[in-house]
Simulated scan of single mutants.
Amino acid sequence: MVNVTIELVKDGNIEQCRQLCNELMAFQKSKAAIAPEAFDSMNFDTRMKKSYESSLESQVIVVKDNGMPVGYVFSTIENIENSKGQYPAWAPKDENSKGFYPEWVNLPNKIGCLNNLYVRDQYRDMGLGSKLLEMSMEWLESFPDVDLIFIYVSNGNDAALNFYLSRGFTFSHDVFGGFIKAIYKFKK
């Protein structure tokens, strides 16, 4: 019998997400049609841990089955004032490539970002992804000075893109020549 719990990480122990984050990066590489090799340098240390340590605020929620992590959601509040126009080292470069942030809006200094949401295959038809999204959105929307929330979906991950679009997010722009799709939602 499945004994699933959902736990908010309160002690900073994000290490329990290492294997899941690495599985997510491998999954994204397997789906990517554009620059799958870029995922070779993406892992728990270079993506989740680095972002967790550099964000203004962060939240990690872990799904466990009998104490074993089987899914997670990682969200942050980011200060983008000094990062507009910057490209991470792993990003595919192209002269016509747009970065993370859209040109269509006057961006605030702070945004919410749902960075990772991952649930292992055998747990996907249990509504856990929806529950994690709901919990993440509640947290992101709790910040009075954050009105805009972004999610960046890797190319080829159409199921994830459709999942977010069906829950009120809107396509914004292609990032790094289509390597990532940026979607957004204004706070309720």
Rank of each mutant, 00 (worst) to 15 (best):
D145S: 11
V70L: 01
I183D: 02
L117M: 14
E7C: 07
V175T: 04
K188F: 14
S58Y: 09
I34N: 05
I14H: 11
K93C: 06
F100V: 00
A35C: 12
E138S: 15
G129T: 02
M137A: 12
F171E: 15
E37V: 08
D40P: 07
Y72N: 03
K98F: 05
K98G: 09
I149T: 13
W90I: 08
N3S: 09
P108G: 11
S142I: 13
H173K: 14
N82M: 14
S58F: 09
D125S: 10
N109I: 04
F179Y: 10
L117H: 02
K64P: 02
C21V: 08
P36W: 06
M126V: 03
N109G: 03
M137T: 12
N109W: 01
L56D: 14
N13R: 06
Q122E: 03
E7M: 01
M126C: 05
V146N: 05
A32N: 08
L20K: 03
S166E: 15
E7W: 03
P69I: 10
M48T: 03
K84E: 11
Q86P: 09
M68N: 13
S30I: 14
N22E: 14
D94Q: 12
K181M: 04
A89F: 12
C113T: 00
Q16R: 12
K29S: 07
G156N: 01
E7N: 11
F171K: 15
F176I: 01
K84R: 13
E23T: 11
E134H: 07
G127N: 08
E134I: 04
A33G: 12
E53H: 08
Q59S: 15
Y123I: 05
T46A: 08
G178S: 10
V119E: 02
D158A: 10
S172A: 12
M135N: 08
I77R: 07
N162K: 15
W139G: 04
P144V: 14
V2N: 06
V60C: 10
V153M: 02
N157I: 00
V153N: 03
A35K: 07
G129F: 00
G67N: 06
E53I: 12
G71N: 06
G99E: 07
G177W: 05
P69N: 09
T5G: 00
D125N: 13
S83N: 11
N79L: 01
V2E: 05
I80D: 03
V70E: 00
D65S: 01
I183H: 01
N157S: 02
G127P: 05
P144S: 15
I151T: 00
K181P: 04
S166V: 11
S54V: 05
V73R: 00
E141P: 12
F44M: 10
Y118C: 06
T170S: 15
F44V: 07
